[in-house]
Design a protein around this nucleic acid. Sequence first.
RNA 1: GCGCCCAUAGCUCAAUGGAUAGAGUAGCAGCCUUCGAAGCUGUUGGUGGAGGUUCAAUUCCUCCUGGGCGCACCA
Length: 556
Amino acid sequence: MKPHALDELRRLIVRAGENRLSLPEIMAEIPPEFLRRESDVAVAAGFLLAKKNKGGKPLDLVGRLLENIPPSPLIEKGSVHPPGYLNLKLSSGAFLELIDQILTQGDQYPQNFPWQTLGVPDQVLLEFCSANPTGPLHFGHARGSVLGDTLARIWRHLGVKVTTEHYINDIGTQIERLGASLSARYQQEVLGRPEAAVPQDGYHGDYLKTLAKKLPSGLDPADTKKFAELGKEELLGLIKGQLKELGIRFDLWSPESALHENGKVTGIIEDLKRKGYVAEKDGALWFTAKGLSEEDKERVLKRSDGRTTYFASDLAYHQDKFSRAPSGPVINIWGADHHGYVPRMKLGIEALGLEAKRFEVILVQMVRLFRAGQPVTLSKRAGETMTPGEIIEEVGLDALRFFLNARSPNAQLDFDLDLAKKTTPENPVYLIQYAHARICSIEREKATRGVSWPQEKLVPGSNFSLENDPKTRELAVSLLFFSEALLASALRRSPHHLASYLIDLARTFNGYYETHPVLAESSQELAFGRFRLCLAAKQILATGLNLLGVSHPERM
RNA sequence: GCGCCCAUAGCUCAAUGGAUAGAGUAGCAGCCUUCGAAGCUGUUGGUGGAGGUUCAAUUCCUCCUGGGCGCACCA
């Protein structure tokens, strides 16, 4: 299998740079608009070399680099441009090979791409969502969940061994509150005792009324443990169903209670004690980061009543995760409201002697829902929930997933229901799906009209050519850069690079489509070349949408 | 009080310290007997403010303004 053109170009540049450059630092970009006619790929190589050399003019350095690049069938022409860019115009053979690779590899494309060499990890352990089984998912959960699922899809596409998991806080204070709340609802709804009250710090949502009515009869209201048990089972099932609606599945559901049962929680406290990171104060056991950090406050591991804290469980859970993932990042996706927890968690991991640099947290900022310009309240504990399912019903899963994926995780997101629900091009997901459907339409029309070209019957892919005009090049270059969009999304842990790329590709295709008829083209050679290019574009659009968890219908 | 995130075109958003800051949408002017006008072409329009570091700052640092969030023996 021939290497991908961008892979080959990177290696040519590294070799020409006489080992002063390394593959991951070579960032291939599409040249700016005013240079599109003379080049297809740009690399800011002069600046890289200037840094390595501790001096020298970037333009001179990149000039020498260009001289060192041997003739290659991929490159038609190389040039340098101030202040220090290397610009390459690719040969038409390079694009023919690219289209051939896309069509041959189909939804596996791009195969044989050196992702790991470029910094993509071999394996990833990814925990996300991890909603408490004390209530249904609300809209705030949807963002982190969709992000985690999409990252997992992208990494898997790049050959990364990904394990996705959902932690379940099935024990502790919140679960006790669930039991008490559900018991109260049971008394109100089933036993006809309206005077029974849901505790102030309990769960007041209507879902517990519904749940109470489903419970078996003859339960003892005083047995809140039983209610907690029944409630969390039901709610966990509810959450799993909601995730399924979002197109999300997990490899592993990891209950907190297991960490207590197998002694891992008390184990890490003993471990930390031995290592000198535990202090006793006011009858409680505290983690103290003495020697690791001057700044962070101490945190309780074991309360004065003898019960361990969430922090202790979480450390045990991370020790477990690290032991299951011998290499690669151990990633958590958390809501931004947990950011204060990150440094202490990291210190705890360090104290346990785990590789803290593998511990990674993606903080997802808040989503605010808007309807008719007014914010929609989202408070789980107050019971005013808007579930992902309700949003899907209103705007569709495609729009929901696309919108949530189209914004960098560390920026807040305002989700306007009225806007997203419009099936007009105001929602860019339609632009992308439309481009895909148009290409499908060309295929249908080809069959209907009985159009065929002699080249189709020859050896696949070997007998076509592309015209050399700006729009054809623009579309071919856009296809070439799919790998870079995937790379950016994988390395920077955000699918929005892919989403932006797809908008760009769809628009580029639409421009091409307008002026490059396929079936009406009289030159068979040209028609077949255009057809192959369109099919390649369709494949990339489909693969890209798939990775975002968005559908790619053949008709709309 | 301490800390985290954000501020880019009228609106929603891009831009790993590098070229003349890009898209979608809205506005304006055009384009449907030709594979899907959910589209295309042209055009108007932008880095919150003040300093600093750098050959080079939307990007890094300091301060300010504005918005969101966090500082538990909850999870």
